[in-house]
Design a protein around this nucleic acid. Structure first.
Lengths: 348, 348
DNA sequence: TGCTGACACTCAAGCGCTTTAGCGATCACC
DNA sequence: GGTGATCGCTAAAGCGCTTGAGTGTCAGCA
């Protein structure tokens, strides 16, 4: 069909009203499943609307108090850290799946840091842009819950721990502590006594949970060669830390990486330093993705269903928007997929 | 909407008008830098607005014909193909950088296929949700330009070739043909005569451009052992194709992968089959990322600045929204970063 | 002095939708 | 056969903003 440069006006309720021979209000009632019109009229109006390809103008809807039919998602990452990260795209795509069903839009924004993120929330709120937001990367000392409370913006925190102080927020989280405990348990069983955890960003709630749990598990077993080192999640830092610990006097026999990218980088460094995986050092990636099957040996990884995580979060948010109570829901603990990068400790 | 705890009402222009002792219209004039108010009044109104933390309601703005202050971005990907892809996040983050300056929102949506994508455009248009859209992954036979034309939605096609038939669309593209020619040239110079191009999705405009160019270059030089094989960009297909071609009677001495993920998978397969890189087979990745420095040997790759790509596209879109003419702008040709995975052909 | 026009500002309509109040007709009921 | 409910629908206001058409004031000029 050749491009027709026609005006292409959007049909409005007035058009429908005229064609159906009723008032605008009747159309509104009919289209919104409200009492006030007969079934016959409702059907007729529906038919005309369909025929005209009518869709409610979100602007008008929002103006008359119905909310913006949009939820917000802010990713606070320094631009250059936005690397190879399958998690967020998958999360978002799960979120979308749920939102799309309800014709909710997703307003997305990448910013540099939390301060900017807060500014974005304020702006969105003042501009009536979103009805609620999804918050990721909760921190141990996080200004966002307070802000959202203050603004009265419904929100779901993704990956946070249950938070008593903000009863208005829903939380969707995975039990990192449990997962860490089971990983350590597994490694201990394989004879590993010196374990280094190459963690993610310090200050992130789940990073801290993992670190705390690792420390607790170590203490419980009287292990001394166990530590966590925080990084910025980049391959560069992952590699650097790996190099450092493997070169130490008593190198660890097992490495736990907080994401797949660092695990991969770590394996490369290990190879370079003459460490064989898993004979000399075992490696576990706390994130499963295609990457883990792209190196030799294949990486054992904690696998979770990120899309489902997103779906769950989105469902909680829609529930909140529907006036439901805030809830805390726990998604399944990530499952350790044992591949080739983990084995018995050499000196066991 | 459910009644949230504290009302926290947003200030409106009426509030400002009252506090400043002028009419709403005067406020509008003052705040929008329009003539009609004295500088003194303008300053006073500005001050009050600031003080009240006022921000225009996008809904109201949109309703009164000002547009939605939002642009749309649809990613059509089967959910399970959303893998490790640094390109899009970087692209989006470049886009945001430009949009944020102008306080434009980015409405983001992931869908299954192009048909859904078209449906989303129609919906967004009918709902007055976006003022323009950014289109990625243009195809050789693409229904989207026609649709956008019909809807009169300003749009920028990212990665398309210049398109005479749609004078209303802007295009931002990289010269894949030139890049491919230079890569082939380089490989030819190293003595490579049998080259296989593990391409991306058939039907994508840039995939076809690369394939056509490769064929042309091969013909020009009378090479017969040169071919392109299309894939779905996944590591699985990348690996499968690699395995197949390396096992053939006359295996290629150089492989060009359309993305980093497949290149990585390919290198793993090569190793598995006993091919040493680059001694037995050279590898080039058409996408540079951290991944390329995470394998041994480091991968030679075509590097481009994805964020800048995004910025350029966003700038074109804002220009279009400002009423500027549609343009076709070419971003710099990707540059081949020679690392360790390319070398002289063994049988040269 | 009277007239014009620039200027600073106000009024009111309108964008597309929701929603409350209200109106006439029908119906049940005593 | 009158009273009051109920039903199906319309009229009109209002959400927060823009905008074109006024209104009133004052400087400048003949």
């Amino acid at each position: 069909m050749p491009a027709k440069r026609s005006p292409a006006r959007r049909p409005t309720m007035k058009d429908i009203a005229r064609r159906a021979g009723v008032s605008e209000s009747a159309v509104s009632f009919a289209l919104n499943d409200r009492p006030g019109v007969s079934e016959a009229t409702r059907a007729r109006v529906r038919r005309v609307a369909e025929q005209l390809g009518w869709r409610p103008s979100t602007a008008a809807r929002a103006l008359s108090g119905e909310g913006a039919a949009t939820v917000g998602f802010v990713l606070a990452r320094p631009a250059d850290t936005l690397g190879v990260d399958s998690f967020f795209l998958q999360l978002v795509s799960g979120i979308q799946e749920v939102l799309a069903e309800r014709h909710l839009g997703l307003l997305f924004q990448v910013v540099e840091d939390i301060a900017d993120e807060c500014a974005v929330y304020r702006r969105w709120w003042a501009e009536h842009r979103v009805d609620g937001v999804l918050v990721v990367d909760p921190r141990t000392d996080d200004p966002r819950p307070d802000l959202l409370d203050e603004l009265g913006l419904p929100a779901v925190v993704i990956g946070g721990a249950p938070d008593e102080r903000h009863p208005g927020l829903s939380t969707v989280w995975a039990d990192d502590a449990g997962a860490m405990a089971s990983v350590v348990d597994g490694l201990y069983g394989l004879g590993h006594r010196r374990i280094v955890h190459i963690a993610g960003l310090a200050g992130l709630a789940h990073t801290e949970r993992r670190i705390r749990t690792l420390r607790a598990e170590a203490e419980r077993r009287g292990l001394t060669g166990v530590e966590s080192v925080t990084t910025d999640y980049s391959d560069a830092e992952g590699a650097a830390v790996t190099r450092e610990v493997l070169r130490s006097a008593a190198p660890p026999t097992a490495l736990i990486y907080d994401n797949d990218v660092m695990a991969l980088a770590g394996v490369a460094v290990a190879a370079e330093l003459g460490f064989s995986v898993p004979a000399d050092v075992s490696v576990v990636s706390w994130e499963d993705s295609a990457l883990c099957r792209m190196v030799t040996p294949w990486l054992s990884a904690l696998s979770r269903d990120s899309m489902e995580f997103g779906r769950t979060a989105a469902r909680e948010l829609t529930a909140l928007l529907d006036g439901g109570p805030a809830r805390t829901v726990r998604v399944p603990v990530p499952r350790l997929v044992e591949r080739e990068s983990t084995g018995a400790a050499r000196d066991a």
